[in-house]
Amino acid sequence: MTADETLYERLGGREAIRAVVDDFYARLLADDELGPFFADTDMESLKEHQTDYLCEAAGGPAEYTGPDIRTAHLHVPFTEALLDRSIEHLLASLDEFDVTGEDREAVVGAITTHADDLLATADENE
């Protein structure tokens, strides 16, 4: 690893990030509480958007052009427990691909930075 290497490069580029995204969504879909939220979702499009988002957040060449985080999750009445459960699945996926230390924290941080927007969806679903 060199000092000027981006997180995107350290993670292995788009293909490696997509592999983590695929694993993450497999875990979410298999989860009894979270899986049903994806019943009517175009999973390929969702995975592409998530990959673009993480690639951009990691300093890669992709640009996220999907909906803003709150709008994209209006159908999910997130609670802190569901958000924590989602993060646990993300951590397990990162573990699966040996993403550790600061890189792991940076990927999780790219998601948790939107925690307030995600949790606000619960209020909008009441």
Rank of each mutant, 00 (worst) to 15 (best):
G101L: 05
E33K: 06
C55R: 01
T41L: 02
D4C: 04
D68F: 05
A120M: 08
D42P: 02
A120P: 02
M1K: 11
T6I: 11
D31A: 10
A57G: 11
L83E: 13
A110C: 06
S93I: 00
M1I: 10
H73P: 02
L91E: 12
E105M: 08
F37N: 05
L90A: 12
D52Y: 03
A39E: 13
R14Q: 10
A110H: 00
L91I: 02
F24W: 11
G13S: 12
L83T: 08
D40T: 14
P61D: 04
L119F: 09
H75A: 13
L46Y: 04
V107R: 14
H49F: 09
L54W: 09
P67A: 15
A30Y: 09
F97W: 05
G101N: 03
R10I: 05
A30G: 14
E105N: 11
E33F: 00
G35R: 03
L46C: 09
L11F: 11
E44T: 15
G13D: 07
T113M: 12
H75V: 05
L54P: 09
A30D: 15
P67M: 13
A120V: 07
A39R: 14
A81F: 15
T113C: 07
T71A: 11
E96W: 10
F37L: 06
G59A: 06
L28M: 15
G109Q: 03
S93Q: 02
A81Y: 14
A106C: 07
S86I: 00
T2H: 13
F78P: 00
T79M: 06
D23R: 15
T79D: 00
D22I: 09
Y64C: 07
D95C: 11
H75K: 14
L90P: 01
T41Y: 00
E124K: 04
S86R: 14
L46S: 06
T71S: 13
Y64M: 04
T2L: 15
T121D: 01
M43D: 08
A72C: 01
E124G: 02
